[in-house]
């Protein structure tokens, strides 16, 4: 049976990817609210997803505040789809 992608098989990273798969883009505050995570932890997991090439992170400014926006990449989309397929295999769905 195909091994589950270790980058995705983690609660917070999988939650972030599940959200991003359903939207065009989402900002850091939205992801933090939806995943009910801490800013520090979310930031670390976003970096891991970004380093794996699964998401792109854009940092901009709104007035004097920074705004971080995340968007899933084609590589991330493919990895997520493969992850779901592998899950189905494990669960015999």
């Amino acid at each position: 049976m195909k091994e589950l992608d270790p980058i995705l098989h983690s609660q917070l990273r999988l939650a972030v990817m599940s959200i991003l798969m359903n939207v065009e883009e989402a900002d850091f505050v939205y992801l933090k609210e939806q995943t009910e995570s801490t800013a520090g932890n979310l930031s670390v997991q976003i970096d891991k997803l970004s380093n794996a090439g699964y998401i792109t992170v854009t940092k901009g400014f709104v007035g004097k505040k920074t705004r971080t926006t995340c968007q899933v990449t084609e590589q991330g989309r493919k990895a997520f789809e493969e992850y779901v397929e592998a899950l189905k295999g494990y669960l015999n769905l």
Partner: peptide, 24 residues
Amino acid sequence: MEEKKMTERESLELITSMIQRTRE
């Protein structure tokens, strides 16, 4: 939410729950 390992079933439930949240 913390970074922890999950069972396959928990993974699927998490995906479903996040999809639901983005819809709402």
